[in-house]
Design a protein around this nucleic acid. Structure first.
Length: 436
RNA sequence: GGCCCUAUCGUCUAACGGUUAGGACGAAGCCUUCUCAAGGCUCAAAUCAGAGUUCGAUUCUCUGUAGGGUCACCA
């Protein structure tokens, strides 16, 4: 009988959920799920200086948002002081740790701390991604594991929490690799079993250093706020440092759970390429259902547009295909709004009449369009009716003025689509207005 | 600097020791076209260097070089 696989995600609430943390959580989640196991969650929240309630809430909400984990009462390191204390006490009793008198060299340092008695052994462990790693722990010295019995430090905390929650696989970033020998040492002193380790490569900024706060946008919330879709973010992040070995790129979370292979995770760090994220997000935008597309579009549509007197959701719905075609992320709707790409749908276009090169063919357009029946007033039908005439007279001098008459802009969707959205009556009205 | 990790197009990456070193993003060009997008097609672009093992190294070994991570009484 194989033991149930238990992975872990223990973020520290010292910032909003980081893009790299999400990816680590994702890998932990895939590995646990595909093996019928589970991913545990706990908050490593003993650093009270950097802690913020806002961060904690953001992380917990994200767990629900991305993994459907409803966490009512998260396990918190800050509430486990008594437990840590017992273990440290035991270590001291067993002679594996000792109270050390110090001469504080710096301000704020204590004259007495608890140090781990380093047996100075060579620690060898097999990393599921990196392979065998051997480290001589002599250079680590007798490192401090607690300031005192009520202030236990990170390494013993991790070992105790992983042990008590039955963690079988520690999947974490490569920035933790040098912590591993220390933690194994403590484990062995406590007689705790050693979990499997898998250190995943770091996500790098374009300057090839670890992606951190000093770089552009690093929190998941920022990306969501820019209108990246969660599914796209998950897909993109999952493909950094891992790939299925073939040429597929678009994966649902369900597919990722079955396809993900820990053994195929790379050893080397990878740059977070926003351009590729943009492309992938666009792929997801294209696949969005109409209700979802409307929901997101409305959410990102500025109030200045919603406040136009002629604005209605009914009309806005007709613009959805145009939006879907143009944006790669939803914040671009704000840019479209700023350049006036929506205004003319909800009110008369404002433009310099000089923009219209020639009004010569507008009366003909009005009569052609007038012949189209109301119920047939759609872009393909309108195009069919006008096309030959436009070709005969010169498309530039027929279609160009038509577009400007309808939109007031040099750049816009094609005039047939414009006419369809505006409707027959309004189209003719705007063409008439352009003559005078 | 010590310790640890890594090394294929600009970027993400594929390639039982035998391939014209493949794909994607991005760039460029072309087509489509009334504009802007979208779409289609085409093209450029890489095995860090040097030894060794081998009939044959992107692939295995060593050295060098480069990059990264980490060295708290933070987590």
């Amino acid at each position: 009988m194989k033991d149930k696989i238990v992975t872990r995600f223990p973020p520290s609430p010292t910032g909003l959920l980081h893009i790299g943390s999400l990816r680590t959580a994702l890998f932990n989640y895939y590995y646990a799920k595909q093996n019928g196991g589970e991913m545990t969650f706990r908050l490593e929240d003993t650093n009270r200086e950097k802690w913020k309630k806002e961060y904690e809430e953001n992380i917990i909400e994200s767990m629900d948002f991305f993994f459907g984990m409803k966490i009512a009462a998260p396990m918190k390191a800050s509430e486990r002081g008594e437990i840590y204390k017992k273990y440290i006490l035991k270590l001291v009793e067993d002679g594996k740790a000792y109270v050390s008198k110090e001469e504080p060299a710096e301000e704020g340092k204590r004259s007495e701390v608890i140090r781990f008695k380093n047996p100075n052994s060579k620690i060898k462990f097999n990393d599921l991604i990196l392979g065998d790693i051997e480290v001589d722990t002599t250079d680590l010295g007798d490192f401090v594991i607690a300031k005192d019995l009520d202030h236990v430090l990170y390494h013993p905390q991790v070992v105790i929490d992983d042990f008590e929650t039955g963690v079988t696989h520690v999947i974490r970033g490569q920035d933790h690799i040098t912590n591993t020998p220390r933690q194994i040492l403590i484990q062995e002193a406590m007689g705790a079993p050693r979990p499997f380790y898998a250190h995943i490569p770091l996500i790098l900024a374009p300057d090839r250093t670890k992606l951190s706060k000093r770089h552009e946008a690093t929190s998941v919330s920022e990306y969501l706020a820019q209108g990246y879709l969660p599914e796209a973010l998950i897909n993109f992040l999952s493909l950094i440092g891992w790939n299925p070995g073939d040429e597929r790129e678009i994966f649902s979370i369900g597919e990722l759970i079955t396809e993900f292979r820990l053994e195929k995770v790379h050893k080397n760090g990878a740059i977070f390429d926003v351009q590729k994220l943009n492309w992938m997000n666009k792929e997801y935008v294209k696949r969005l259902s109409e209700p979802k597309l409307l929901e997101y579009s409305l959410k990102f549509l500025p109030d200045t547009v919603k406040g136009i007197s002629g604005f209605s959701v009914e009309t806005f719905k007709k613009l959805l295909p145009i939006i879907q075609d143009r944006i790669s992320k939803f914040s671009e709707i704000e840019e479209m709004a700023a350049s006036g790409d929506f205004d003319y749908f909800f009110g008369k276009p404002i433009y310099d009449p000089g923009m219209i090169k020639t009004k010569e063919f507008i009366p003909d357009l009005i009569s052609i369009i007038g012949q189209i029946r109301e119920e047939n007033f759609n872009a393909p039908a309108i195009k069919l009716k006008i096309w030959d005439f436009a070709t005969e007279k010169g498309r530039g001098s027929v279609l160009g003025p038509m577009r400007i008459a309808l939109s007031g802009k040099e750049k816009s969707p094609d005039p047939f689509t414009l006419a369809e959205i505006l409707g027959k009556g309004e189209t003719i009205a705007r063409l008439r207005a352009a003559i005078t």
